[in-house]
Design a binder for these strands. Sequence first.
DNA 1: GGCTCCCGCCAGGAC
DNA 2: GTCCTGGCGGGAGCC
Length: 965
Amino acid sequence: MNVLLDLQNSKKSKINSSCGLTSVDEKDNAFLEPDVLMKIPGNISSVDFQETMGSLTTPTKGKNNPVTEPWTPTSNLKMLISAASPEIRNREKELGLDNSVITEPIDASQEPSFDESEKLQISRKEKSLGLLCHKFLARYPDYPNPALNNDICLDDVAVELNVERRRIYDIMNVLESLHMVGRLAKNRYMWHGRVNLPQTLATLRKVGEEYKYGEQMEQIKQRSYEREFDFDGDEKENEDMSKPGDTESELGQKEMYFVELPGVEFRAASVNSRKDKSLRVMSQKFVMLFLVATPRIVSLEVAAKILIGEDQVIDLDKSKFKTKIRRLYDIANVLSSLELIKKVHVTEDRGRKPAFKWTGPEDFASTNDADASLTAPSTATGTLESRCSVQNCAKNLFPSNTVKHSFTRHPSLIKLAKSIQDDRRKINSAPSSPAKITEFVPSKMAQLAAICKIQLDEQSKKSNINPKVTPAVVNSLEQAEIGRKNNEPALNIEQNTNRTPEIQLPASTSGTMPFTPSQQPALIHVLLPQHQISRPYTLYVHPSVRPHPSSLAVRSMTFEDKTGGSSGKATEESTSPGKSATKDISLSQMQEHSLLQNNSACSPSSPASMKRISCDQISEKSPSKVMKMPNSSRSPSPYGPELGDIIQARLKARRSLVSNRPSPRALHLDPEFINTPENTAAEKLDQSVERFLEKEEKLSPCISEGGVTPLRAIPLQEVLLSSGHLPAEALIPTGYLIPISQPSLTNLQDSRMPGAESANAAASNHTVFHTPTAGSLPAGAQEFTPNSFSLKLASSAVPVSPFSVLSQPGPSPVPSQRLHSPSPAILNFTLQNMGLIRSGSPGRPSASAPSEQMNGSPAQLGFQQRGMIFVKPMSPVPLQQQTGQPLALFNLQQPLIATPKGTQPIHHSFFHTPVSTLSPLATVVTSSSNTGSRNVYIPQRKLDIATEDNCRGGPENLMLLNDFC
DNA sequence: GGCTCCCGCCAGGAC
DNA sequence: GTCCTGGCGGGAGCC
């Protein structure tokens, strides 16, 4: 084959020199080989080919030419493709025959007839999506050099491959689902290659496990099996096909043929219908099926049924099924070209059924656990990985509505969906957008949380130890303290690592501490993975924050909280509706808050700061504040201006919310959240929020009228001091969960103990999710970014932090719990996007546009490489209410310009938000070993799995699908 | 006759 | 209005 390739290459060079194709080589020398290959043989009927043939030799006369594999661009391509894939080799054999047949008319006719004949006779296979994908893949290396230009222009590709761009979209969608490409802008993608593939597969598998796709497949198979033996297959099948499995309650029931997931939500969110049905989403889910299947064989029938179940359950008929099958073929062709799957045939009692067998990597999970930096091709890959992470996050933002994790969208929020979608489209469609912004939107909440956390920490420095802090908080602080101590010595470390997201995940959890949801229901814990620094910090966001109607409103994030469990097992429990609430924080609120923070940080005596102080005085008189801070009256607030800032910010946010309540902004708009079983809970939550807002507005008219924003921020310690428990009506914002792997949490918990070694070990394992978000934020040593805040906090070692002080009493009796945090990169991006921070000086308010931060400068790469968060919407769960007042945003911590090195490290307070075991988040958080226990095994018949090469189902292909029973 | 899946219509959204 | 994007299904090629 090498000889042949050399021969072909020599011929190719000859052709290039003769027909001027060298320009192609010059165009993109990064992938010279693939490019050249594609330029030459890509299109038999293309003008280039005709010119080539004309220049080389007479395009006719097949008799003189070799009967087999005459030298044509197509043959060259086929040869190379055959070398790449045995499966394609077989396929190319057929094509070769076709070509030989085609050659006949070519010889006897003119070139125009040649083109027509070719199109008529070989176009179908020659233009197959699989082959086209091969051509496309041949253009780019599996592991591209980040230093080179990896951009993909769809127009160029379509022209070079001589295919309609529509076909390219299909390929790109599938590749994008695997994060092999990332969309940069309209009509532009970036080639990532297989760099991100292991991480993507690992994530998909976890999600698939969480969604119990394996169980669903088994149930479908079981249904089919029962049907075959009990009744007439066709008739019963049709009946089953038309029967929508409406709820999860039907899952596992005998009557249910296939799992119908609550897809009605898509109806409510028509704007998302296309996206939800996107080929990329289907592709991811299709891959999930393979990753969770045992054996890794998935029939198209089963896959289609499962995928259909995720869409609208109504109007399910054969037409829909057929359409889904078509799409699955499209996806399968691309995946086959990627050599991830291989077509086989499952021989059942009813006959052979097309299926696909997973031939991709099997141990990518272990790879993830291992040090990704070792596997990373280069440092520059971090950017790609970051993009992948963000994309992955985005993908998970639109998880298929599973039976277990349906979420309800409040009717009042339906309008918000369209607005959010509009924003997304604007961002995504922006030609200059370096990456999908949609993925960032959810993390804006995280940014707000980060800001709150920072501010809280800042206030903690000024405050005394709060004896009422729960042990969980103490533990969190202690662990966080340890994590920081052991981690970053320098606050401003260039955040550029090669670590893969998987590896970063454990690192990001470093410093996290056990958290008892019941004790701290109102506090939203956000873990911000630190790139390189691996210093996560917890953010406390008050759930009562309302979405802002601003166009910059962020998509709400879901923070699932478990109130029932105080033990480690409690975290495994699924979230029950009614215990959590969803809240949204608008960017305006964040901005407000950030501004306050910045003001306090940079110039506490600034006019803004003074103004806030005055506002604080007013706000303290407001009943709402009293309610939220019952102890404030008893003990003068030591926070002073910060508290005023918080109150002011909250009031402002409140006003915005009230005035623009109908705005479709900043609420969880994922279509899968609509019409779900948690609908009632969501409504209650929303109603509760509404009541609270109205009540507060009435109670604090002076503040609202005074122009003070309703945004109210309360330090965590103050809240704790007030009652030692979470305030009543404390609501947890619903949006997306950032799952943290269980091992990472374990590491964190291990590291939280005074044992320096263990802490160091945990710190050493810190990994950072590379956020593939657009733009980068250089973390200067004197600069403050959301990440840098944490760093500074860590290094600042403020013993006055109430948590840190409290953490000293001793080991926390509270077991570790899951922690969900948004990506710091997303945080940074959002802040930058809002103009709150500047890439150059994030610590100061800036109106810099995102585009300014996305210039692609190397210094900005760190931003893209930050935190990869697996975000998933969760059902709103009302927190335990005791005081009857929701917490507002916490006061932002002032950035510490001067890093007090050698000082006492700060204790991070990590409140691990419990995650339902049923949620993908929980899956991610939970160790893989736990997932297996949830699988339901159904006895299966023995099936014959035959590849296309051996359709008869030889002994080697005979597989027992029930071997896992 | 069923399986594959190419092809292009057409709608939604961005520009 | 044009272009981009991609859902969708007819229908032809293939087995």
